[in-house]
């Protein structure tokens, strides 16, 4: 009798935990989409679009682990989470490298830029480094 009630409490707690994980993960993906709208240049958008979205996906998959009915689906979800956590840094690095190699400008509000990327428009060019280095000149000049 009491064991039955305990099992019911555990089932309800697992349901609440799984739904909370699903909600948190989807809100994190929504925050990533908001960052894609609001952030000023591609380098900051890469932050939102890879890290926040991937963590949101991991939370959603963890919610699926809690709510999953069978052992096989739990195994599949854990493998998917591990693969996601291993591959997301590589994807973000590749996108940032593509933006860097194609000379995508940084926003004018950037304080410190070691790569010598071109600034965005007149305000960005006016804020270039203290050496008076022209925008984009640092690419081939670095040892």
């Amino acid at each position: 009798m009491s064991g039955d009630a305990l099992g019911e409490v555990v089932a309800v707690a697992a349901d609440v935990l799984g739904q909370g994980l699903l909600l948190a993960g989807s809100l994190l993906v929504g925050v990533a989409a908001l960052g894609l709208v609001r952030l000023p240049d591609v380098y900051s958008r890469i932050n939102a679009g890879t890290k926040a979205a991937a963590l949101g996906l991991v939370l959603v998959l963890l919610g699926g682990v809690v709510l999953a009915p069978t052992a096989g689906s739990v195994l599949v979800l854990l493998v998917a989470i591990a693969l996601q956590l291993f591959t997301v840094p590589i994807a973000g690095f590749e996108i940032a490298q593509a933006a860097r190699l194609t000379g995508t400008p940084v926003t004018g509000r950037t304080h410190h830029d070691e790569l010598g990327l071109p600034g965005a428009g007149a305000t960005g060019a006016a804020d270039e480094g203290p050496d008076g280095e022209p925008p984009g000149a640092g690419r081939g000049a670095r040892p």
């Binding site: 990533a32 989409a33 894609l36 591609v42 958008r45 890469i46 679009g49 890879t50 979205a53 994807a91 996108i95 940032a96 593509a98 933006a99 194609t102 995508t104």
Partner: peptide, 10 residues
């Protein structure tokens, strides 16, 4: 184009 790749990823 890097923005577009990022959006496809998202």
């Amino acid at each position: 184009d890097a923005d577009r790749v990022l959006a496809v990823d998202l």
